[in-house]
Design a protein around this nucleic acid. Structure first.
Length: 584
DNA sequence: GCCGTTTTCGGCCCGACTGTTTTCAGTCG
């Protein structure tokens, strides 16, 4: 039983409670408990064994009992009771934007339908529009949302979101009257998937009309979802929603903080303001009046996000860390955290060539690295078991080594500092062994051990497999530990906290696979990684020269996961990297 | 359902926008 599994169950309770019309705060308690458990640095099982569940903030007697029941019986009474009450199909309706729990319950109750296909029909037939409190426009909106949901999904990957957000941002930034402009929301926080895109603008009131006009007429816009005095929303051709919010220059810092989120971070910030006799909203920081209400006539002067944090006894919290996962404790004590940045990256580790399933030769990949200013390339093609990906036989490995030697010598003779390291992405076989005999493994400069098959093994077996791979003296690092593909394939069942502990102990790194489909190791394990001193490597897993640029996404995630340059292998120079490989 | 050094009961962040309403409920972030 993983933390993730328990969190999912609790979140299911939260969703079903909303649909059942349960008390809002009771429902929220389950959501908060889920959030807390996801952020734990240790396994929840430990708390069950030690009977210390209620020591965790947000978990009281009742939820502790639910968790224990689930541990013992694989069922949760509160969840089972809700499932009796709420039809399963309705859960999916919650993903339809513009349709919330109240109206879902109403439609279900009045029309007796439970499936999205039925909902679609009811919208088309006019049955939904005839319900009290709903109308023609509501039905149309629901229908359209379903269509987009079916076509594009609920969320987009980081790279997909940036492809829309960046041109949109450039466009808005340069409009007449725009004084300040930034991308806010989950994109500013470097989340691995994005729901919608938020752009914030500071402008004088007389210019807001024309800015909104230009925004809703942008080429990427296919539908205007809303247009108000301070906010407009549009949908782009690839189904993403973009919100543009315009505030005055004075309101900008508080608005930026507000629209950056996360929701959980904002809630804590508002609580902190209240504890200090102030109120924080998107317009600014204000004093409270005698009735403990926001007194808009008494603003507290704060001209930047940094100053708002200072007024609430905090140092500036970088957007990446605004998730209510320990940032308040850290930035009370510390002014900054040293975080890795793009400029720190010196080399490219984990790249494929035409020897296996890469599109370009080793030389072409190396040239692309040189062009981008990197000092070294670690080639790591697939190992022999990965036949589907052209995994290398022992003979091919030996030939590749010769190729690399030759290339390195030619760079040397040309007076170039650049060098190529010999690596392999070795499959971790089902019993946890690596994919070549030891004498071959010893010939590589580095070995990335990855799982590519049997991804859905039971957790116990999978853990044995991973721990054995970590133990192997040839293993330099683990590749994409969970095997997930974002929005497409789930993580393998793992106790990652234990894997991190063991890897750190054995001086084995765990990569942050920077491919935007993966972004694995997940940033949520950043606290655990920091605590254990785990080393990572920001690896593009490049299958082409363009793929090298994935490093950008990896750096975003590494920052979010609180990695400083010293704990990132490829911030080392080639010589330092070589020395580290020898020592480890 | 959870929480607490003003509290063990009574709060729990808060404002914009929309659609369906005649003053507000639902949804969103």
């Amino acid at each position: 039983m993983t933390n993730q599994e328990i969190a999912e169950k609790l979140r299911e309770v939260y969703n079903l409670m909303q649909l059942a019309g349960e008390n809002r705060f009771r429902a929220i308690a389950f959501d908060r408990a889920a959030q807390t458990i996801e952020a734990l640095n240790e396994e929840i099982i430990k708390h069950i064994d030690e009977d210390s569940l209620t020591d965790i903030k947000g978990i009281g007697k009742s939820i502790a009992e639910d968790i224990k029941a689930y541990h013992e019986t694989s069922t949760m009474p509160v969840l089972e009771a809700l499932k009796e009450k709420v039809p399963k199909g309705l859960m999916e309706w919650l993903n339809i934007s513009g349709l919330g729990p109240k109206n879902i319950a109403k439609i279900h109750k009045e029309l007796g339908i439970t499936e999205i296909t039925e909902l679609k029909e009811a919208c088309q037939s006019g049955a939904v529009a005839d319900l009290p409190g709903l109308g023609k426009k509501s039905a149309e909106k629901i229908l359209k949302s379903i269509e987009y949901l079916e076509k594009f999904g609920e969320r987009a990957r980081l790279d997909q979101a940036l492809d829309i957000a960046e041109p949109m941002f450039e466009f808005v930034k340069n409009l007449d009257g725009v004084v300040k402009c930034e991308i806010a929301g989950s994109l500013r926080r470097s989340r691995e998937t994005i729901g919608d895109i938020d752009i914030l603008v500071a402008a004088d009131q007389e210019n807001t009309e024309s800015i909104f006009d230009a925004f809703v007429e942008h080429d990427l816009v296919v539908e205007v979802l809303g247009r108000g005095e301070t906010k407009s929303s549009i949908r782009t051709e690839n189904g993403r929603q973009v919100d543009l919010r315009i505030v005055s220059e004075k309101e900008y810092p508080a608005a930026l903080m507000y629209f950056t989120g996360s929701k959980e971070h904002n809630i804590v910030m508002r609580q902190r303001a209240r504890e200090r006799g102030m109120a924080l909203n998107e317009y600014g920081l204000f004093k409270l009046n005698d009735e403990k209400e926001t007194d808009f006539d008494q603003p507290v002067n704060a001209r930047s996000e940094k100053e708002i944090y200072r007024k609430l006894d905090l140092h500036f919290i970088p957007p990446e860390h605004r998730e209510d996962r320990g940032e308040f404790e850290f930035y009370t004590e510390n002014e900054t955290m040293n975080l890795v940045s793009d400029d720190d990256i010196k080399g490219v580790i984990h790249a494929h060539s035409t020897y296996s399933d890469g599109k370009y030769t080793i030389k072409q990949m190396a040239e692309a690295c040189i062009e981008r200013g990197y000092d070294y390339l670690g080639i790591s093609d697939h190992s022999r078991t990965a036949a589907y990906a052209g995994g290398l036989t022992i003979d091919e490995v030996k030939r590749q080594w010769e190729d690399i030697n030759e290339l390195n010598e030619s760079y040397k003779s040309e007076g170039k500092e650049f060098r190529i390291f010999k690596g392999i992405e070795s499959d971790i076989l089902s019993d946890g062994s690596l994919d070549y005999p030891d004498d071959i493994l010893d010939g590589f400069d580095f070995v990335i051990a990855s799982v590519h098959s049997g991804l859905s093994m039971p957790q116990g077996q999978m853990m044995e497999r991973f721990l054995r791979a970590i133990e192997h003296p040839a293993t330099t690092m683990l590749g994409h530990p969970t095997g997930r593909l974002l929005l497409k394939r789930d993580e393998s069942k793992l106790n990652l906290n234990q894997i991190i502990d063991y890897a750190a102990q054995k001086n084995v790194a765990i990569e942050i696979n920077a491919n935007p489909w993966r972004l694995d190791l997940d940033w949520r394990y950043g606290n655990k990684a920091k605590e254990t001193g785990l080393i990572t490597s920001i690896n593009p897993d490049a299958h082409s020269t363009d793929g090298i640029d994935y490093i950008r996404f990896g750096v975003m995630i590494a920052r979010k996961a609180k990695f400083d340059p010293a704990r990132v292998l490829n911030t080392k120079s080639a010589e330092e990297f070589k020395a580290w490989l020898k020592d480890s």
